[in-house]
Amino acid sequence: MAVSGGIGAPEVSGMIKILFFASLREQLGTAEYKLENYSGSVSELRTYLGEQFPDWQAPLQAADLQAAVNREMALASTRIADGDEVAFFPPVTGG
């Protein structure tokens, strides 16, 4: 795990990178997933991934799940474009 400085810039062209953190990462069994030629909103992406992977459906529909697009907190309606980095995670518990 990188500590400071962070991971590289979001992926470019034709692909979105999706990251999962904490309990969600464990439930899905993966930290990262790449998707080609996707267009839609954050909530549509949650639905789409649940359709692709039935085991992911329940964890991705959790009511308190949060999303970020390009490292900014996102809304269900936030649009996702090629090259974006999308992240899903449970409510934060730092401090």
Binding site: A68, P90, V92, G94, G95
Partner: peptide, 9 residues
């Protein structure tokens, strides 16, 4: 920080 910084325990 407690409510929005992405950390998980």
């Amino acid at each position: 920080l407690k409510t929005e910084a992405p950390f998980w325990k």
